[in-house]
Amino acid sequence: MKIFHVLLLFVGFSALAQKELPNLKLNSLEGHTLSLKNDFTEQDKIYIFSFWATWCTPCIQELDELNSLQDEWKKDVNFEIVAVSTDDARTQKRVKPLINGKGWEYNVLLDTNQDFKRALSIVNIPYTIVVKNQKIVHIQNGYVPGSENELLAKLKTL
């Protein structure tokens, strides 16, 4: 138990640290390898990484909402949504038909053995991180209908 308490102290220590994206490469839906470090670097552009899975209903609701709102929002803010599928080999093949079936217009990354999810210590999905200039500037753990309004308000302040 002692080790646990000692380690807990570090949580406090690290609270001030600004986090970067992990140095990982993930495949896109089209089979291209994208680097989190080198491919999402446009100056001052906001990248929203939304972690989801084909079996996660609230995730799909969130992505449905964002999909219908993003054109409107883009008038105010320069951003791009990246849907990070945490589907493992069981459901990964469902990603492509589902994305198209839903008519979503997202860049999709496949986090098949959940390396990206693990690097960010994500326990539950949906989980959204907002990245600007290579730094994680906002985190949203979970989604309920209406969260998208709060997210937009946040984007405007970044």
């Binding site: 380690l7 807990l8 570090f10 949580v11 220590f13 690290s14 001030l16 640290a17 600004q18 986090k19 970067e20 690097a119 960010l120 210590s121 994500i122 326990v123």
Partner: peptide, 21 residues
Amino acid sequence: LCAMAVSAQEKTNPFSVFGGL
């Protein structure tokens, strides 16, 4: 880890600490 955590507070430092509970 302690060394890394402490240094993480200085933002100019290339060290960073991350994790979860």
